[in-house]
Nucleic acid binder design. Structure first.
Length: 518
RNA sequence: GGGUCGUUAGCUCAGUCCGGUAGAGCAGCGGACUUUUAAUCCGUUGGUCGCGGGUCCGAUUCCCGCACGACCCA
């Protein structure tokens, strides 16, 4: 056994017991289960049959019969078949209550020796919590009023044998590391975790419906790109052997989606993963899900309205309300949401004097006072946004649109008609976090080339996140892209908000964790 | 990258301050029990105390380093 294997032996007992290690290294529990398996096999019992047919879910039965009185239930002669994981056993010798769990919930069953028969009852006695079983029988209500399956003769089958003991029934699984690394256990024993992922699916489904109702076409664009464009972030790099070229996992689909707008699709959206080679936190996972959409002949102001409508649509369908709690704070989505320019926000919310905000030199001094590192090469817009991040962001609890971003930090946004140093752009903040970013798109290829050149200068000055020159994209713009507005919405953060989750890892089934060397 | 905290039985946790190689509940195993639901009752197995090093007669405990995780900061 190497040092690294030894190091994680605690985890390995529950993460990899299949044939790994000798018998004296594995836990007593695992040993007992293996003995049990051998004896079941010896008696000719198939541990993993696949011919069982399941008629009902536990929830369907509960919904139909849960409200009926015991007397009425006695007249129900229908026979039901269900399957699920054995979660609890309350054994009385010649009878026993068991609970099984399927994708919809739990249901109790009652096994009576003189009804199910010797053979089935003997099988029951050798089952373990965690096994997958099949049940058949009628419904009745117990003395305490719980709807229960009265298992019929031979109405119990083993469908899959579990070799591991499940986490404790009362406290469940709370070790966060095991919860993330072995999500299957988390899902088996923690119903609230299952609920979050059901809600996640529902939210995405609602978003999709909202977009389709507005005649947006769902598309898929490359995840592997020769140039990682469309956002300001560091990419993951990979290599294609046959072509012999470097590729990057996309940091955004933006430039491809806008090519589709140029191609005449006019309204497109994509819900998919982006990859950013950055730190991990409760709000950042290296791969995360984003919806981006683009609408020709719309402006960023149209998108503010549409964003409000989208959030309202999701909240209404999810909660039947526009108010909900996030981490102890009540959020109210009732439109219209507050709109503030970056500068006004820094003055009104950040408490910085307007004279400072309007003066490049004083602004840099102020930034340094806040502990921000300012380089001589940093454009004023970048300094302004650093001050914004420091003084404003965390205070934007209720949904707020921040508008009029500096052109320096918006290489793909259309310039504002009145002030060409600003762009027609907004970001949406809720609970101190950026949820969406949108702008009227820059469709002037000459201006776009100039913006890319500006980014190149920043890259040369050491900014690894600065955008690259993308001649192909400029070529597409040169064909004429209609006036368009586009938006990206961080789906994980949106789901966090709607499910009251404190960490992004609670809304991603398999968040990235450090691997362990073998 | 920095700080704080954590890692003890399959799971949930005590114990460690003040050094003498560990306890509980659940699960498991044996037994009783045909309306329980954290079933109950009797009995019982199970641990290189995350890993490595140091101090010491002796380290789960003290010191140093490392790994992994959580939170905060950058």
């Amino acid at each position: 056994m190497t040092i690294t294997e030894k190091k994680y032996s605690r985890i390995q007992f529950i993460s990899n017991g299949h044939g790994r290690g000798t018998m004296d290294e594995i836990s007593e529990l695992l040993k007992k289960r293996r003995e049990k398996i051998d004896s079941l096999k010896a008696d000719g019992i198939d541990l993993y049959p696949n011919d069982a047919r399941v008629g009902e879910t536990t929830a369907a039965i509960s919904e139909r019969y849960g409200q009926m009185t015991p007397e009425v239930l006695e007249m129900v002669t229908e026979r039901f078949t269900v399957a699920g994981r054995l979660m609890a056993v309350r054994d009385f010798g010649k009878g026993a209550f068991i609970s099984i769990q399927d994708r919809k919930g739990r249901l109790q069953a009652f096994l009576r020796k003189n009804q199910v028969g010797e053979r089935a009852f003997a099988l029951f006695k050798r089952l373990d919590i965690g096994d997958i079983v099949w049940l058949a029988g009628r419904v009745f209500k117990t003395r305490t009023g719980e709807l229960t399956i009265d298992v019929e003769e031979n109405g119990l089958r083993l469908l899959s044998k579990s070799l591991r003991s499940l986490p404790e029934k009362w406290h469940g699984l709370t070790d966060i590391e095991i919860r993330y690394r072995q999500r299957h256990l988390d899902l088996i024993v923690n119903p609230e975790v299952r609920k979050v992922f059901h809600q996640r699916s529902r939210i995405i489904s609602l978003i999709r419906r909202f977009m389709e109702e507005r005649d947006f076409l769902e598309v898929e664009t490359p995840m592997m790109q020769p140039k990682a464009g469309g956002a300001v972030a560091r990419p993951f790099k990979t290599f294609h052997n046959a072509l012999g070229i470097n590729l990057f996992l996309r940091i955004a689909p933006e430039l491809y989606l806008k090519r589709l707008i140029t191609g005449g699709l006019e309204r497109v959206f994509e819900i998919n993963r982006n990859f950013r080679n950055e730190g991990i936190s409760t709000f950042h996972n290296p791969e995360f899900t984003m919806m981006e959409f683009y609408q020709a002949y719309a402006t960023y102001e149209d998108l503010m309205k549409m964003t409000e409508e989208l959030f309202v649509f999701v909240a209404q369908n999810l909660f039947d309300s526009l108010r909900f709690n996030y981490q102890g704070k009540e959020i109210d989505l009732t439109p219209p949401w507050r709109r503030l320019t970056v500068r006004d926000a820094i003055v009104e919310i950040g408490g910085v004097e307007r004279t400072v905000v309007d003066d490049g030199v004083r602004m840099a001094d102020h930034a340094r006072k806040l502990g921000i590192e300012v380089k001589r090469s940093d454009p004023p817009g970048k300094v302004l946004m650093a001050i914004f991040d420091e003084t404003v962001e965390k205070n934007l609890v209720q949904p707020t649109f921040i508008t009029h971003y500096p052109v320096d930090v918006s290489p793909l946004s259309r310039r504002n008609a009145e002030d060409p140093t600003l762009t027609d752009r907004f970001e949406l903040y809720v609970c101190g976090k950026e949820i969406a970013n949108a702008f009227s798109e820059l469709n002037d290829p000459v201006d776009q080339r100039g913006r890319f050149e500006m980014q190149l200068r920043e890259r040369e000055a050491g900014d690894l996140e600065a955008h690259e020159m993308d001649e192909d994209y400029i070529g597409a713009l040169e064909c004429g892209m209609p006036p368009t507005a586009g938006e990206g919405i961080g789906i994980d953060r949106l789901v966090m908000l709607f499910t009251d989750s404190a960490s992004i890892r609670d809304v991603i089934l398999f968040p990235l964790l450090r691997t362990r060397d073998e």
